[in-house]
Design a protein around this nucleic acid. Sequence first.
DNA 1: TGTTCTAGAGAACGTTGTTCTACAGAGTTC
DNA 2: GAACTCTGTAGAACAACGTTCTCTAGAACA
Lengths: 202, 202
Amino acid sequence: MTPPPAARHRTASEQVGSALLDAAQAVLDREGLSAVSVRAVASEAGVAPMGVYNRFQNKDGLLIALATRAFGALKDAVGTGDPVEDPLGRFREGCRAYRTFALRYPQQYRLMFTGVESLASPSPAAEHGSATLQVLVDTIDVAVQQGILRTEPVQAAQVVWNAIHGAVSLELANLHVTLKRHGFDPAETYDRMLEVLIDGLR
Amino acid sequence: MTPPPAARHRTASEQVGSALLDAAQAVLDREGLSAVSVRAVASEAGVAPMGVYNRFQNKDGLLIALATRAFGALKDAVGTGDPVEDPLGRFREGCRAYRTFALRYPQQYRLMFTGVESLASPSPAAEHGSATLQVLVDTIDVAVQQGILRTEPVQAAQVVWNAIHGAVSLELANLHVTLKRHGFDPAETYDRMLEVLIDGLR
DNA sequence: TGTTCTAGAGAACGTTGTTCTACAGAGTTC
DNA sequence: GAACTCTGTAGAACAACGTTCTCTAGAACA
């Protein structure tokens, strides 16, 4: 007896995009970027693979949307550069939140900075990374206004971003082995780095 | 009239490995990592695709060998941490050489740190990156011995590596747009960063 | 010349990203 | 309710990829 054809399931149009994004994020977090294929994501979302092309133009479009979402989450995690009484405390807090996010969502962090190669149009990192940089600029600016730091905020913010992005990237790439072999804790080293930067910016 | 079968060309055994490596490097430098396929590399090398499997076990093995070679080149570029009269000069010189290498061979730099995901065995970066770190450790150690810097060399070297790797990575990812928009030069910012680090390590 | 080693040629397989066609679910209009 | 429109699903097809396998033949050696 031939089994009846499988009933077709149809997701409401407004939900296909978010279903695909949620699914892509789940697959990414669970199995890494190499497992994020169009079919795997569509299957995870319970929609047809063509949905990726209908909604995001192609696979890269999906990854870009995913990275964009992650950048938003990072910016939320880092907080704001609004004026506070203790700008250096805010600075440290924001930088730590940056690292915490990356360690909690390593696959997303990798996707954000190296997952999508787009030569024709600006990469998602170029478009959205500046929001995080702006928080750094604002935070440093407050400290400068209060005379705590003596530096030009934009360039200093870039220097700080260089350092924290590098720290997190090397840690995610398991490149703190020598450090650990000498008995140093990565989190403590990260804090030490922040203090070095602050001292260098006075 | 059927054309005669193409004459078979056979590369000497000792040369297949290096021919594949040279070819892979050429394809990588010219077209980026996504163009480095087994067939493309074999074709570029004038050998059969099976050569990749005969010599490097699989594609990843080839990429690992390529990254290993690049790490060697980077270490050569950075120079040594031998004692010199002007350790901070040596430090700056080595850090600049690091950036110069990455900007000259962006695709290789990307391959070195993010091109091969190996979960079971240590990544090429983990195995070979420490040679570069050791140069930093030695350089900083000389400065410490001479009383110029006051810091623990291993942790400080990791901090410096964080910063320069981050700087170079963000630059390669075109994430210096805000900086440039404010009229800052990336090379000058890199030097500024080195000075911030040195000041913070005194 | 015969034997051994091994690289080249080519095919095959499963998977991937992408495109295309046909079908059908859902909503709207008459 | 029937017809029409919009659009998501199912499935096929294609080229390319990484990989494995088989057969042939080039190279070296005895």
